[in-house]
Amino acid sequence: MSPEQLLKQRVYRLTFGMVVACYAAFTLDFPLSNLILVLAAKFLTVPAAPSLKGLLVLVISLIIMPLLFSAFVMLFGFEPQIMVIMLSLILMWFYYLGTEQKFVLLATFGIVFLVLISFFGVLNGVAVTALTENLIKATFIALLIYIIAHTFFPEKRQDFQLPASPYSEFARALIAIKSVIVLLPLLLFYLYFLPSHALLVLIFSAMFLMQVSTKESLKALKLYFIVNIVSAIFAIATYELFVMIPSLIYLMLFMATVGIYFGREIFIGSKLGKVYAGAIAGYLVLFSGLALSNDNSIDTKSWDRLIQILFACSYIVIVAHSLERWLFRRWKTKFADRLGLNESA
């Protein structure tokens, strides 16, 4: 298979998966069905044939993580001080994992699941069990779509070695600490003040921070900020069009167009591939969450989500860059011998 044929195969596979996941998300009537579209698209942005070991690890993590988080909320949900400490430690662990490319997918799902379950635990501890069941159901359907997409659009299995993290263990720990310092005030604000549709904004923000947590230059942060805000505007504009043309066929054709265009950008090997992969996930989180919400007033308030996302992402960029400039730059001088790059990077 030539490079051009391989590129087409991957683009068609992503597009097929997004269309099927869109149909499933909008026809299966259960809470969190919108995550089918988000998770299936996220799985399919990984340019590699699935292995039995990889699928097994993914299945176990997608079952074990929600169950553990559910138990965590049931234990500490009524003790906010303890819950915040535990939440910070778990978030730190996931952001630490996210600094190594082979764990990015697992870390992203872990953060999304943690935010979902902990948020609902604060709102309604009784609903956590039902939420966990629906979360596991959505992930199983997304995995099934992922396997079917690879069955129809296969590629030769090969040793696909992701590059090792360019950061030392100490540097990865500092990046994780910085990420939690940035995200925790935002998380606490939304947990305790509960503005409308805070969950969508929190998930979008947590995924955005996963992208920018290892970016140090202001230029890189600006690029990620602009691309993600454009994806949020695109998501709300898509939703407004869907309100005017509430047709599933139209929506599936639209998703096919998105898959073809962004798939090529993601898999062609350009420097912006990772940015587009992150942005499309944020786009799908916001759009699917808006479109499948039970809130009848969402049409008039959808642009409020954009204002909240603009505020949250601006906060993340400003605070992350400020910490890098005023605190972590000093730490780099103080701990220079422990912050070296890996030789393999």
Score class of each variant (00 low, 15 high):
141 I>Q: 01
146 Y>L: 11
224 Y>N: 13
92 M>F: 13
153 F>T: 04
253 L>D: 05
52 L>E: 12
262 F>V: 11
258 V>F: 07
204 F>H: 00
133 E>D: 05
342 N>P: 03
323 L>G: 10
160 F>L: 11
271 K>L: 15
120 F>L: 11
59 V>G: 12
97 L>N: 05
93 W>S: 07
210 M>Q: 15
171 A>I: 06
29 D>Y: 13
229 I>K: 02
317 V>S: 03
42 K>I: 11
71 A>T: 12
112 V>M: 02
233 I>W: 14
176 A>W: 06
293 S>E: 07
171 A>V: 12
307 I>F: 14
150 H>N: 15
11 V>G: 05
38 V>K: 05
102 K>M: 13
20 V>C: 03
40 A>C: 06
46 V>N: 04
173 A>K: 10
104 V>K: 12
122 V>E: 09
157 R>D: 08
1 M>H: 12
324 E>P: 02
283 Y>K: 00
126 V>I: 13
241 L>S: 07
4 E>M: 06
305 R>E: 09
277 A>E: 08
39 L>W: 02
239 Y>N: 14
36 I>S: 00
345 A>E: 08
23 Y>R: 03
175 I>F: 14
277 A>V: 09
326 W>E: 07
59 V>A: 15
273 G>W: 08
298 I>C: 11
110 G>F: 01
192 Y>Q: 05
180 V>S: 02
184 L>F: 13
82 I>T: 14
174 L>Y: 09
20 V>Q: 01
337 D>P: 00
269 G>L: 10
175 I>D: 03
203 I>K: 03
339 L>T: 08
271 K>T: 15
134 N>M: 07
260 I>R: 05
82 I>P: 03
97 L>I: 04
285 V>M: 12
132 T>N: 01
153 F>G: 05
50 P>W: 14
106 L>H: 07
213 S>K: 13
329 R>K: 10
286 L>M: 08
343 E>G: 08
171 A>G: 13
105 L>E: 03
161 Q>H: 08
258 V>Q: 01
256 A>V: 08
321 H>W: 08
120 F>N: 13
270 S>M: 15
159 D>A: 10
149 A>H: 00
97 L>H: 09
340 G>Q: 14
66 P>N: 04
193 F>P: 01
83 M>P: 09
213 S>G: 05
66 P>A: 04
120 F>I: 09
70 S>N: 04
40 A>Q: 02
165 S>K: 08
192 Y>L: 04
244 M>A: 13
60 I>R: 02
86 M>A: 12
264 R>I: 04
156 K>H: 10
155 E>Q: 14
33 S>N: 00
273 G>K: 04
120 F>R: 05
232 A>V: 09
159 D>E: 08
338 R>G: 07
308 Q>W: 15
103 F>M: 09
88 S>P: 00
37 L>M: 09
283 Y>V: 05
104 V>C: 04
240 E>L: 06
210 M>N: 15
98 G>K: 04
22 C>N: 09
234 F>I: 04
250 Y>P: 02
